[in-house]
């Protein structure tokens, strides 16, 4: 009997940690991850659980007598669909619609499925966003096709380098560097008119908006460790983009 109880608790722990890991890898806020894990634990009668989430690892202690578990988070990207899916699974588990086994199976499926939009659609979206920002920031219509193309190219470069090397700062540096060079060529050959708005519009898809918002909200919620580390990540990204552009402009 205790054996069964033991495996059931182990399964529940696996389930919480998997949910936390998927959410953290997909770019959820730290306080939401902690909240979700604690809610799931309380619904499984683990009232005294503690959970400590940082952007690089999750510690979860179910109670005083059970062992504390730890998972490492290696790569973080932005995939809000998965955040929403895990959220709905945890809601169902808390409401009693799912058993732990069902929730765990569902989470495994979420973990293994790729929900991303087609890569070409993402590139198109980056191009459209660049074009829109060019006009919103007061650029001229003549520059629109350039911003459209350069924004897409910058996004492709960052995504390919990220896939090859997993070094984010390098990918962003090269991406903004190439965008800067292309924009300078377009302006100095006389096809485009305004270098500043053209560059700003084209690098908009690379801006770390999610990281900045998450960092601030984590800091305000009292999660200083993750708030500061996400802030550092946002700063590094912004620095990489800025340095890439600065190298081009200094010539």
């Amino acid at each position: 009997m205790t054996q069964i109880g033991e495996t059931r608790r182990e399964l529940a722990l696996d389930c919480f940690l998997l949910a936390g890991r998927i959410m953290m890898e997909s770019g959820a806020e730290t306080y939401r991850v902690e909240d979700t894990m604690i809610r799931m634990a309380v619904s499984q009668n683990m009232v005294n659980s503690h959970c400590f989430v940082t952007p690089t690892g999750i510690m979860f202690s179910p109670s005083e007598e059970l062992a504390t578990r730890f998972v490492r988070i290696n790569n973080r990207s932005t995939d809000l669909e998965r955040v929403a899916l895990v959220n709905s699974v945890s809601r169902k588990l808390v409401a009693g619609e799912y058993t732990v086994q069902q929730a765990y199976d569902e989470l495994l499926i979420i973990d293994q499925t790729n929900y991303r939009f087609n890569i070409w659609l993402q590139i198109l979206a980056a191009s459209v966003a660049s074009g829109c920002f060019l006009i919103l920031l007061g650029g001229s219509w003549i520059d629109l096709p350039f911003a459209f193309v350069f924004g897409g190219i910058g996004f492709i470069i960052v995504e390919t380098i990220l896939e090859e090397t997993r070094v984010k700062i390098f990918a962003e540096f090269i991406g903004s560097f190439v965008v800067g060079i292309l924009a300078s060529i377009a302006v100095y050959t006389g096809f485009a008119t305004d270098l500043d708005t053209l560059i700003i519009g084209s690098i908009m898809p690379l801006v770390p908006g999610l990281l900045i918002t998450n960092a601030v909200r984590d800091l305000m919620a009292g999660h200083f460790v993750s708030g500061l580390s996400k802030g550092a990540e946002a700063f590094l990204t912004a620095f990489a983009i800025g340095a890439g552009i600065a190298v081009v402009l200094s010539f």
Binding site: T78, F117, Q122, A129, L136, F155, L210
Partner: peptide, 18 residues
């Protein structure tokens, strides 16, 4: 229109639910 389009495009990049 442009801000609507830009925010929607960012939604695609961040993979928000369809």
């Amino acid at each position: 229109f442009l801000s609507f389009l830009a925010a929607g495009a960012f939604g695609v990049i961040f993979n928000t639910p369809r």
